[in-house]
């Protein structure tokens, strides 16, 4: 929709770039100065993060994070599938409620309410079950959208070729649906991984909680949490990139 840039707009782009680059550099410099003034750039405060034992401890936490995320993902996807395949008043109400109630509240219910009714799960499940309950609703929405995104003509064509219904679903509808769903599934996986940081609240030793223990131990609060945030960023970016790669590969083979 934009015009191909002529000499004038090219000049304008150049000036806008130059101005915004200097504004950005100024902001970064201001931030760094603020850090330096408060002694937070002192190399001694960052050096521990160049040592293996510190990383081993953090990666240990990352392992627990991934474990909780995987368990939640499997449970939530299974629950979402059930919800998506059985659209009735109850499942719709369930999805609606779960879309609006904070996971933290569900975690608290798990911690305080259920024990007084004799339901007591190990710590790991106290984190995973509320997360799964909440994310199942999101998965259901994704699955429903995925299946309805496939042109009904595709199913009809398959049926008219004499394929049985199950075969049509398995080999015609689902592959296309999954392709449409992939970006959403990845977004969901990222959001799930982020939500496991609630382990911070229930003392499940995942990445953020380990960050807290580490910060308490070495007193390097800012540094620890910046490093922890960076680890989350790398993992989640990696997840998104992987999905793009898969999607591209799938698009090639589909032709």
């Amino acid at each position: 929709m934009f015009d191909a840039p002529g000499p004038r707009s090219r000049r304008r782009v150049f000036w806008v770039s130059a101005v915004s680059a200097s504004v950005l550099a100024g902001l970064v410099a201001l931030g760094l100065r603020q850090f330096a003034l408060n002694g937070q750039l002192d190399p001694a405060r960052w050096r521990p993060y160049l040592t293996w034992p510190v990383w081993r401890y953090l990666l240990d936490g990352l392992g627990s994070t991934v474990l909780a995320a995987c368990a939640t993902g499997v449970l939530a996807a299974a629950g979402g599938l059930v919800l998506a395949l059985r659209p009735n008043r109850f499942t719709r109400a369930y999805a609606e409620v779960m879309r609006t109630v904070p996971v933290l509240l569900l975690v608290y219910v798990m911690l305080f309410v259920l024990p007084s009714f004799g339901v007591n799960l190990p710590l790991f499940w106290k984190l995973v079950v509320p997360l799964a309950l909440s994310h199942a609703a999101s998965y259901a929405v994704i699955f429903r959208a995925g299946v309805s995104s496939v042109d009904p003509g595709q199913r009809e064509a398959g049926l008219s070729l004499g394929m049985p219904d199950g075969v049509v679903t398995r080999f015609v509808v689902l592959p296309q649906a999954v392709r449409h769903m992939t970006p959403l599934l990845v977004t969901q996986a990222v959001s799930l991984l982020k939500d496991t940081s609630l382990g911070y609240v229930v003392s499940y030793t995942e990445l953020l909680f380990n960050g807290r223990v580490l910060a308490n131990y070495n007193g390097l609060l800012i540094q620890t949490f910046i490093v922890v945030a960076f680890v989350y960023l790398v993992v989640n970016l990696g997840l998104s990139r992987l999905a793009h790669r898969l999607e591209a590969a799938r698009a090639r083979t589909a032709r």
Partner: peptide, 8 residues
């Protein structure tokens, strides 16, 4: 988007 809100 890729860093948990709680960490922020």
């Amino acid at each position: 988007r890729n860093i948990p809100l709680l960490a922020w």
